[in-house]
Design a protein around this nucleic acid. Structure first.
Length: 276
DNA sequence: AGTATCTCCTGCGTGC
DNA sequence: TGCACGCAGGAGATAC
């Protein structure tokens, strides 16, 4: 389940193979994704030169100068770079191959089909999927004052707030759980009731946990073209996520679990007290 | 406008 | 070993 660090790791992994190369062919095996792949995608991409591979939120942006291919990995999507000569047979969920002039193939795989592949000639910041997004969590504009200000007009829990893409992008369920643990904040705490001190701690923990995850993803980048295509997503040590009933590493209390907005939520009852 | 709920889909773990 | 079932989950769409 790619979160922001995984998407950024993927971006770094594919970038050297893509930039300044020409797309020579596009093979679409399954059009059905979150939104169907456009019928004319192969036609519009063929012979285009890739200028840059960037990212906004969890969207990978393959830029062509005056148009962009937006790729979202959804829940289960992945991208791999293959050597054309190796002739790797496509698997069941390999939806898309983008063949490049340098002899490589970018292959998109997505078993659960929650991802998307969208071509647009709109300025990317104005695209409907991008225009209303909050700031990137690793930039300075995402800080305690900003987040506290965002909370003032809302009555949601702090976990719901940081997972809201209009407030801040890229904080998925795993990292929301982990950063709240690290900041000793109960996930159900009412967002606007938290102090500035708590927001300072929380924003720092969000940045820190994401940065560490990106770094750990980077350590396995050299394996990016391997057949499994998985750049070590979960090498990172998790304190609470998925640890229901296990002992807290800090205080040995049993990790608790409940559902918040249909999302699995984990916390330590001692380290993250209800009231603070 | 803010908030909660629904929805897409397949693989995996569990229980029999 | 096999089957049925429930669940997970990003985030846009929809209904209040």
């Amino acid at each position: 389940m790619p979160e922001l660090p995984e998407v950024e790791t993927t971006r770094k992994g594919i970038q050297p193979y893509l930039e300044n190369t020409t797309i020579t062919a596009v093979i679409i095996r399954h059009f059905s994704l979150r939104w169907p792949i456009a019928n004319n995608l192969a036609e519009v991409l063929t012979n285009k030169i890739i200028h840059r591979v960037s990212r906004r939120a969890k969207y990978l942006l393959i830029e062509f100068g005056n148009s962009t291919l937006m790729i979202h990995l959804g829940m289960s999507g992945s991208l791999r770079v293959l050597d054309k000569l190796a002739q790797d047979k496509p698997g069941k969920h390999d939806h898309l191959d983008i063949e490049l002039s340098n002899g490589h193939i970018l292959r998109y795989n997505d078993p659960r089909r929650f991802g998307s592949v969208i071509w647009t000639s709109e300025p990317i910041s104005q695209h409907r999927l991008i225009a209303h997004l909050g700031p990137e969590p690793l930039l300075k504009e995402f800080n305690a004052q900003y987040l506290q200000h965002q909370a003032q007009s809302k009555r949601c829990s702090i976990k719901t707030l940081i997972m809201n893409g209009k407030v801040v992008v890229g904080v998925g369920n795993i990292y929301a759980n982990e950063s709240l643990f690290l900041a000793n904040i109960h996930p159900r705490a009412v967002a606007k009731s938290l102090s500035l001190i708590q927001y300072i701690d929380l924003t720092e923990q969000i940045k820190s946990v994401l940065q560490r995850a990106i770094k750990s993803g980077g350590t396995t980048l050299k394996d990016f073209t391997n057949s499994d295509g998985k750049p070590g997503y979960f090498a990172q040590h998790l304190n609470v996520y998925g640890r229901k009933g296990e002992s807290c590493f800090i205080c040995k209390s049993k990790i608790q679990h409940f559902k918040d907005s249909q999302r699995a939520t984990y916390y330590c009852p001692l380290c993250q007290p209800e009231t603070n």
